[in-house]
Every structure is written in C-alpha cells, then in structure tokens.
Write a protein that binds this DNA or RNA. Structure first.
Ligand SMILES: [Mn+2]
Ligand SMILES: [Mn+2]
Ligand SMILES: [Zn+2]
Ligand SMILES: [Zn+2]
Lengths: 137, 137
DNA sequence: TATCTACTTTATAAGTATTCTAAAGTAGTA
DNA sequence: TACTACTTTAGAATACTTATAAAGTAGATA
C-alpha cells in the first residue's frame, strides 16, 4: 500500500518513467493489502471504474508486460483464452473454478512440497506450478 | 494401436459416425504405441503429411473436441496462445519447455502425491495438474 | 435398391485476445 | 527553453478459435 510519490519512486528505480498511466495502474493494482488475480480486460474495467483517467488498451498491455518483466506481477498458467496475472509474486499455487473463471491462492504452506523424481537431460527447472481445478459440490 | 475397422467400431460405440475424416484422425492420433502432445496446427500438419485426405480446419476442431468430450483426449493447461492436447489420458503431469514449446510427461509414479491442506467451501476438486517449466541448462 | 433424415463436413465469416505500427505526446535533461 | 529518447495512442494486423449455413453422407427404412 503505497502512495503516488512512492510509486513514482518505485517506477523511477525500475527505469520506467512515472507517467500518469503507469501511476494509475500502480494504484489500481497495489493500493490494497490484498493481492488479487486479473485479466487485462478486468484491469481495463477497474481503471474505467476508478474513472478520471482513460488509458488505452495498448498501454495497459505494455505496462502489465513491463511490470511482469520487473517482477511486480506474475503470469498464471490457466488454460483459457485469456491470460491471467497475479499481484501475488510469492511462490504459490492455485485453485481455478472454470465455471466463474475465478482463481484462488494456495499458499506454499498449504501444500506439501512437490518432489519430482525425473529430469530432462540438458534442462533445468524454472518453476513448478500446481493448478487445482474445482467445481461446485 | 488399432486398425481402421476397430476405429470404426470405437466411433460407432461412442455415438459418432465413422466418417472418412474421423477415421483418418484416429489413425494419426492412435496408430502408435507412444502417446504424444499436439496443437490443432500440429495435427493439421500431420494429416497433410500423411496426405491422401484433406480435412478442413473446422472438422479438425470439431473432431478433437468431440474426442475430448468422449475422453479419448485430454486438454492440457499450458499458458500459451495455443491449446495443447494429449493422447495420454491417464492422470499425469508435465514439463514444459517454453523455448521450443515442447511438453514432456511426468508420470504419476515420478512425482510425490500432492496433498493440499486447504479447501474452498462449496467447491470440490476436479483435477490436480502440475506444470513444471524448464529451460536449457 | 431408392429414399429419407439426421448428422457431418466444409468454406468462409465472425469473434476475440493480443501485438504491431507509426504518429503525436511527454519526461527528463541541458 | 529546447532537445531527445521514451511513452502513449488509435487503429490495423495477426492468430487462434468458433459460428454459419449450404452441400454432402451415413444409417435406417421401405
Ligand atoms: Mn507476458
Ligand atoms: Mn475443449
Ligand atoms: Zn495467486
Ligand atoms: Zn502428457
């Protein structure tokens, strides 16, 4: 939960110019204690609701990708036609409800360590993600 | 590894008419001991190579979706712009190489049972999938 | 075998998410 | 203030997938 001057600082430190658009996106994404999951169109909607600023889709895409590159966001592998992002950048896993397309965190402490007894010659592990699909009882 | 008459039987039993197109797709997908992963465009390419028949993209999509519905194929959640399918319908997990976009199986025996100490009220687990992203060493 | 009907295939259009383009705007610097 | 590199933007382009509706076919029936 940072204020605008702090986002400006954060952006500058990342080598990103603190534009009106980037600051607004920071506010929408990080002005809360809770982390959350979103798609680009979710985010566009959120920005529209918080109103006052109008940001083009191209800029939203650009910004989200640069934030992801800087490590401020994570992309989540949900099989879907849309890409999901997560403001929770810690190592964790997900429940996914295909019905309402909602994601829920499974923290590292809520899942047993995954041990894989196989490796691929010449390759090393970059990440391990568990996706638990759920449905209504 | 079945012959055409057997695919015809299998299709009929599934309530799918054994058309020239569906039989050819069965041959391409199931005429091998090994299971494999593919995208729709991979499959279209394979069909073109095995030649003799020309199958429209719409039919390939339709057929793959009906095979999936019948349980002859599984869709794999790889974050990507393309949908991956798997002729291995047993419960297993995957390595994914983002570089060359290749999937490799991790059999159930090669991974420790995943125990999740969390549940979502009103929801039940439908599937648990582990995706291990790998890169060149 | 000829006929009928529901199912299937097909070309092509439509839909949708994402990226590209290149022109106009802006931040930081001198 | 002027300059330059970076950024934003509208709109075009791309790519995957689904929808449409007309033509074709499988299986059943007479
Ligand atoms: Mn990305
Ligand atoms: Mn599907
Ligand atoms: Zn999360
Ligand atoms: Zn597999």
């Amino acid at each position: 939960m940072l204020s605008s001057p702090e986002y400006i600082e954060k952006l500058r430190k990342s080598g990103l110019r603190p534009t009106r658009q980037r600051i607004k996106i920071c506010e929408v994404l990080f002005d809360t204690d809770k982390t959350f999951h979103f798609t680009i169109s979710d985010l566009a909607q959120m920005i529209e609701n918080k109103a006052n600023v109008k940001i083009s889709l191209a800029t939203i895409y650009n910004t989200i990708h640069s934030f992801e590159k800087k490590g401020y966001l994570k992309e989540i592998a949900v099989n879907s036609s849309q890409t999901y992002f997560d403001t929770n950048t810690t190592h964790h896993h997900h429940f996914y409800d295909e019905g309402n397309k909602e994601l829920f965190d499974i923290n590292n402490s809520e899942i047993d360590r995954i041990k894989i007894n196989k490796d691929i010659p010449g390759k090393k592990i970059k990440s391990v993600e568990v996706l638990v699909k759920v449905e209504n009882k």
